[in-house]
Amino acid sequence: MPIRNIAIGAPQEATHPDTLRSALAEFISTFIFVFAGSGSGIAYNKLTDDGAATPAGLISASIAHAFALFVAVSISANISGGHVNPAVTFGLFVGGNISFLRGVIYIIAQLLGSIVASLLLAFVTGLAVPAFGLSAGVGVGNALVLEIVMTFGLVYTVYATAVDPKKGSLGTIAPIAIGFIVGANILLGGAFDGASMNPAVSFGPAVVSWSWSNHWIYWVGPLVGGGIAGLIYEVVFIGSQTHEQLPTTDY
């Protein structure tokens, strides 16, 4: 059973040069993603004088995050695997694809990347970095389930296009597929809870703006959704494979 591959990792792994290089890659890619993604939100607020959200603003945020994540995953995929998200790292840990210690190092790097990006955004724009929060009329339970489902779709996409050993040439479009699912989910969840799907993306702005209202949702929801996706895909679709995929000419 694939879950037996779950490992804590040796202590020396935390200081191994390969781990440190991967952590730096995660820091840089998360920094780029948050700087572009959150920056688009700040730009929208400036252009509208902090006016009410509009469908055009939601589409703009979706496109900005999709493009930024596509780039962020692409530039770190060959170094660290291009996680750019603690929920992705946790989902890979649950599936036995990364050790606990290495995962912790990745998550620390991702959180630091988000904090630095948020601090720089506040400095260069002179404006507040918007923290994630629930829209009017959206309950805590609704937002929690929404984050679980959206992050499930994200991490499932990561497994299908980047982790599955039988992905073949599909792996070449993994970054764009991952960016697309995040952009699509923002079109859905952006009007309800901001559509985080990424604890790091929520954490940096929360630290800089010091706004922690319902912040736990943006940790629990993505980690639960990512963990479920990793467990299901690894056990059902990877661990149970006993034959090679049929050539397309045989269908």
Results as ranks from 00 to 15, higher is better:
Leu101Tyr: 12
Ser240Gln: 14
Tyr159Thr: 07
Ser80Ile: 10
Ser29His: 05
Val71His: 07
Phe31Met: 07
Ala160Glu: 04
Ala87Glu: 02
Trp212Gly: 03
Ile232Leu: 11
Ser169Asp: 05
Ala87Met: 10
Val236Pro: 10
Val140Ala: 08
Ala160Thr: 05
Leu170Lys: 08
Ala184Arg: 03
Val208Ala: 08
Arg21Trp: 15
Ser22Arg: 04
Asp50Ile: 02
Ala23Gly: 10
Phe100Trp: 13
Val94Met: 01
Leu121His: 02
Ser118Cys: 10
Glu26Lys: 01
Ala206Cys: 10
Val73Pro: 11
Pro55His: 02
Asp164Asn: 11
Ala66Trp: 07
Ile98Thr: 08
Asn185Val: 09
Ala177Thr: 07
Arg4Ile: 15
Ile105Lys: 01
Gly153Tyr: 01
Leu20Gly: 07
Trp212His: 07
Gly189Leu: 01
Leu146Gly: 15
Trp219Phe: 09
Ile105Phe: 02
Ala131Cys: 12
His215Trp: 11
Pro222Lys: 07
Thr54Ala: 10
Val34Thr: 06
Asn78Gly: 14
His65Ala: 08
Ile178Trp: 04
Gly189Ile: 03
Asp18His: 11
Lys166Gln: 12
Pro17Gln: 00
Ser211Phe: 12
Pro86Cys: 03
Val220Asn: 06
Ile63Tyr: 01
Gly103Cys: 09
Glu234Tyr: 00
Leu101Gly: 01
Gln12Arg: 05
Thr242Ser: 11
Gln245Tyr: 14
Asp49Gln: 07
Ser60Val: 09
Glu147His: 13
Val149Trp: 08
Leu246His: 09
Ala66Phe: 11
Phe123His: 10
Met150Thr: 14
Gly226Val: 03
Tyr218Asn: 12
Leu154Val: 09
Gly183Phe: 00
Leu187Gly: 15
Asp250Lys: 11
Gly126Thr: 12
Ala56Arg: 08
Gly225Glu: 01
Gly226Pro: 15
Gly190Leu: 00
Leu146Met: 15
Val158Asn: 03
Pro11Phe: 12
Arg102Phe: 13
Ile238Trp: 04
